[in-house]
Design a protein around this nucleic acid. Structure first.
Lengths: 192, 192
DNA sequence: GTCTATATTTAGATAGAC
DNA sequence: GTCTATCTAAATATAGAC
């Protein structure tokens, strides 16, 4: 759910993808020009078209970057044995990123919201990525013995998406921290 | 939190404001052209500039429309005596709008998210409007005797914003309905 | 593979007739 | 107050030299 990809190393294609994901998050897809991405990736403007024929293809590549970050995040969480610990560690990761959320919102959520307004079918791609996280959370709640795991998983991710939006709207990272503490208590109460 | 304003009656200025609020919600601020708004309001393109000198001014007017809708919503809720009833009626209103949320997201939330990416200061205006709803919810939780009213109010509005985003991402109004039921149970559990 | 120069398109904004 | 025609700026995309 975060956005840290190396932009200085690797080939131009990789730099362009990493820069696109970052700049789309910071400035929004619509307001981002290909010149912005080229500058951020330290690649000449015209050269972008050698790697990506359209802006849509760059958006698609950025979605792929989000998917990889999410997969790595989940892999890291599974080093914990107890599902409640996994979920609470996920929440703590969100809180750790609260300054970014206050500045730009959740990388995945803001992208999903923007893609919904576009004619291309990329919003379906983004929905699939978010579905992955919800399914994983559902599996954890299920392992905790909750028959309402599906509903709880949606509620958890919704809580994160919502507090990301408010944290961003009010530019107040402490909102995310307070909600994180509340969510951790909530997860504990479900385990009991 | 909804968007129903009469666009066929009243003067051109009012029609333009109502059309702007609606089209900004449906297509997003960035993707909406002044020609889109003019067409929706049944006003010639060039004539828009007689009423609003810039697109920013139309956005500002749309924020004002959201503020009025929110104020009316709150006034309606206060016909209930018990604060828990007020909050649950608010939740039911969100669920009633679930089809709109599935298509376009929460009118206020999507606007707040988009304005954050713009250079103008209009995101601060939108934050003030959303703050109004949070403060009102906080007053209700406070009247229920909750010392953690501030935190609960943020959690409630965040839950709504988050489930709006997911309902929109997955184009699934039932997600909003399920979360609404959960939130009503949650409010009841806090009153006890 | 890389880059410059430029074509094409579109949207915000304005001038001025009515 | 209303509307048409048009200007200007900016962004996507392409052609073609190197």
């Amino acid at each position: 759910m975060t956005n840290s990809v190396d932009e200085k190393l690797a080939g131009k294609r990789e730099r362009l993808v990493a820069a696109a994901a970052r700049v789309f998050h910071e400035r929004g897809v619509e307001k981002t020009t290909l010149a912005d991405i080229a500058r951020a990736a330290d690649v000449p403007v015209g050269n972008v078209y050698y790697y990506f024929k359209t802006k849509d293809q760059l958006v698609q590549a950025a979605i792929g970057a989000h998917e990889r970050v999410l997969r790595d995040t989940i892999a890291g969480l599974e080093r914990h044995e107890a599902p409640a610990d996994r979920l609470k560690t996920l929440v703590r990761g969100w809180v750790d990123q609260r300054e970014v959320a206050a500045q730009f919102g959740c990388p995945s959520g803001t992208l999903a919201a923007e893609l919904d307004k576009r004619a291309d079918g990329l919003d379906r791609e983004m929905a699939r990525v978010m579905r992955g996280l919800i399914d994983w959370a559902q599996a954890q709640f299920g392992a905790m013995g909750r028959p309402d795991a599906a509903e709880l998983a949606v509620a958890l991710i919704a809580a994160y998406q919502g507090i990301s939006l408010l944290t961003n709207t009010f530019r107040d990272p402490e909102m995310m921290a307070a909600e994180g503490r509340r969510l951790e208590r909530w997860i504990d109460s479900l385990a009991a």
